[in-house]
């Protein structure tokens, strides 16, 4: 898994490529908590379009990011969810809790 940061206005976009699994999700968690808790970036957008596979530790890391954003009053959004990722979020009843957009433009609007 690779995470590349881009800055668009006040927002930080995290472009993630590869698999988010048991070995890589701690890195994702670290980056999310750094952005949302320490740097207090007002808007964090996680771009998952190039993610082939996300396991439940990855989902849990996103949940931790979401919680941190609620605690600090920042905005946290996901874009580019695959069909599989959507189904996993659906089954865990998370689909309505996350701010989910189809593309970056929508998320930035």
């Amino acid at each position: 898994m690779k995470i590349v940061e881009r800055f668009v206005g006040e927002a930080t976009i995290l472009d993630i490529t590869g698999d988010i699994d048991l070995s890589s999700s701690p890195d994702l968690r670290k980056v999310l908590l750094r952005e949302l808790k320490e740097k207090r970036t007002p808007r964090v957008i996680v771009n998952l379009i190039a993610v082939r596979y996300i396991d439940s530790s990855g989902v849990a890391s996103l949940v931790e990011g979401l919680k941190a954003s609620r605690d600090t009053g920042m905005r946290f959004a996901l874009v580019g969810l695959s069909k599989g990722a959507r189904e996993v979020l659906q089954l865990s009843r998370l689909i309505k809790i996350f701010e989910i957009h189809d593309n970056e433009e929508q998320a930035l609007a």
């Binding site: 701690p26 968690r29 439940s56 530790s57 849990a60 890391s61 931790e64 998370l94």
Partner: peptide, 20 residues
């Protein structure tokens, strides 16, 4: 036993699995 995940992550995963 098998991962080096943070306790907070494991707790969330556990609750997710139970939810599922």
């Amino acid at each position: 036993e098998h991962t080096k995940l943070e306790d907070s992550t494991i707790e969330i995963m556990t609750r997710l699995k139970l939810e599922q």
